[in-house]
Amino acid sequence: MRVAVAGLGWWGKQIISCLEKSPRFDTRYGVDPLPSASALDFLSSLNIRHAPDLASVLADPDIDGVILATPHQLHEEQCLAVLAAGKELFCEKPLAMTAAGARRIVDACERAGKVLGIGHERRYEECFELVQELVGEGALGTLLLYEANISHDLFKNIDRSNWRLDPKHAPAGMMTATGIHQTDLCVALFGEPCEVRAETASLTFAPPASDFVTAALKFKSGARATITLLSCVPYYGRVTVFGDKGWVEVMTEGNVDQGKPTVVTQCTGTQAPRQVTVYHPTDTVTANFESWAAAVAGEKRYRFSSAELVDNIRIFEAIVRSSAEDGRTVSL
């Protein structure tokens, strides 16, 4: 697939590096209106052309697809433009800032007959594939609770003018950075959400940037989830899924790009021995892209349904709304 990558920040360059490993992709353009000198040097080193705007790439008949790694507030408009141009679409998370926006993108994608790729690579981690397998087999029994704390300090020292700290692009603390992955996993495991309560705070960051968010979720199945995110502490990553027959805990030692191991502990009973497995990192970002490309080629189904993509943004929008209204319960 001949593609363009829009957005040449840290993650956009990470994406291009992943695509370079895959025989499924030929990256023709890096798109950015104000690229840094290092970004241009990066493109040049890979013999990839720079385009200053998305419109010029969408007009190029030699481009099959576009991958968006742009500021979040731009996603909806850009997604719709990519689909209107007849190109394949992969969008980094979050898909949109509102559920209505997500529905517009999903509907446009279905009308165009396209497979919507999404940057939720955590579903491709072996540890979470195991969790999904255990849930599917009924090994945990009736699902009760998803409990998570995913925190890091990667934003602690970035310039305060960076869009990643701007509530317009990144409301509710780290929800758009790490929390949106957690809610995606919740939707994959528990199904449709029905209620959200959330709170944010600026504990060490200067407002309006917030460095703390906690959310309590309820699903139509009856299962619950609690998610906490801090933007000002050394990396901490723990997810535990509880059922009435057992639980499984996933402890990650570093962010996706740090190459650290993950320790998974399974418990199937109070007296039963606990099973501990260490997973070493795999390239889940590339795996997600290749899975999307295979789905585009009609070789297999993609892991994300349209309903799941919209439900995740419904949760995100409700967290933003609830936290802005002093933790008011939002019904979905």
Rank of each mutant, 00 (worst) to 15 (best):
A223T: 00
F212L: 01
F242S: 15
S221W: 01
V213G: 15
S221F: 02
P234Q: 02
G237I: 07
F212G: 08
V213C: 11
V233K: 04
L230E: 05
K218T: 13
V233C: 04
L229W: 13
L229R: 08
R224V: 08
P234E: 02
G222S: 07
F219H: 03
S221Q: 05
S221A: 12
K218Q: 13
T240P: 03
R224T: 08
A216Q: 09
V239E: 09
G222K: 05
Y236P: 14
A223P: 03
L230T: 12
T228Y: 14
G222T: 00
F242D: 02
V213P: 02
P234M: 02
T228A: 14
S231A: 13
K220D: 09
L229E: 06
T214W: 05
T226W: 08
G222W: 02
V239C: 06
G222H: 00
L217S: 07
A215P: 09
T240W: 15
F242L: 09
F219Q: 06
A215C: 11
Y236C: 12
V213S: 12
T214A: 10
C232D: 07
V239L: 11
G222M: 03
P234V: 00
A223C: 02
T214Y: 07
L217Y: 00
L230R: 05
L229Q: 09
V239N: 15
V239T: 11
V241F: 13
A223N: 07
F242C: 10
K220P: 06
A216P: 01
A225M: 01
Y235T: 03
T214Q: 11
F242I: 14
V239Q: 02
S231Y: 05
A215G: 11
K218F: 09
A225K: 01
Y236A: 11
P234D: 09
K218I: 11
V241W: 03
S231K: 03
I227T: 09
A215D: 05
T240R: 11
G237N: 07
S231L: 03
A216H: 15
L230V: 12
L217N: 04
S231D: 09
F242K: 06
R224C: 14
K218L: 11
C232W: 10
T240F: 08
F219K: 05
V239I: 05
Y236N: 13
K218S: 14
T214L: 15
T226I: 07
L229F: 12
S221K: 08
K218P: 07
V233D: 10
T240Y: 08
F219L: 10
P234T: 05
G222N: 03
L229N: 12
T214E: 15
L230W: 02
L217W: 07
V241Y: 07
K220I: 10
L229D: 08
T214K: 09
V233Y: 01
G237Q: 05
A223S: 11
A216Y: 05
A225Y: 02
V233E: 03
T228H: 07
S231R: 15
G222Y: 00
Y236K: 10
R224K: 10
V233L: 09
A216C: 14
C232F: 12
L230Q: 00
V241I: 13
